[in-house]
Amino acid sequence: MEFDLKKQTVREVNQALHDLPKDQSAEVVVGGISGDHNLAVGMDHPVKITLNGHAGYYCAGMNKSAEIIINGNAGQGVAENMMSGKVHVKGNASQSAAATAHGGLLVVDGDAAARCGISMKGVNIVVKGSVGHMSAFMGQSGCLVVCGDAGEALGDSLYEAHLYIKGKVASLGADCVEKEMRAEHLEELSALLKEAGCDDDPKSFKRYGSARQLYTFKVDNASAY
């Protein structure tokens, strides 16, 4: 099945995608994309969608089950609140990639901007390049894997998300600390690198997580709130 956004509107394409049978796999290709917002949002189908071109905001938002490939860059909030499935950005991703996502896998071949994985709630994210400042802010669960560097205030106010960074970390946010890389973490990380198609050595990464000091209010921490 093919669509062309030079001839059809985003509404028409999304409606056609939503109308696909929910229990059958299918392959869809969308061309003619030039920064259009809200492409392939709200999918609830086991289909493979290839988007050829640069996507605007919220591409693949709230994805469930679908595999969505973006042959280009993705705008703000790609795969935001994803529940399951896979989203693969072949270029760079703008801010708030996979914000609040509950599940599935986001792979970014290039860099991801600020707030990558903000408020993540179970999603796995693999960024082959670097991520911007405040990434994994208030991250609740899931994993953020960065093969490049991380910007300032990584993991600020982190809950239980696991952060694996290979390169330099500009600075850690409040309550985020480096943690020991144990066997179970190496296993988790290798599986994710493999799934994302990276051949980086898991042992070359460092693990960061929550010091759990801000979990309940303590007067002595007042300056950190």
Binding site: V10, N38, Y58, A99, R115
Partner: peptide, 19 residues
Amino acid sequence: PDWTGPDDLAIKILELREI
């Protein structure tokens, strides 16, 4: 977490409408 200001909000609302 994924929008700031009314211009972004307009796109966010369109996303919810599309979904």
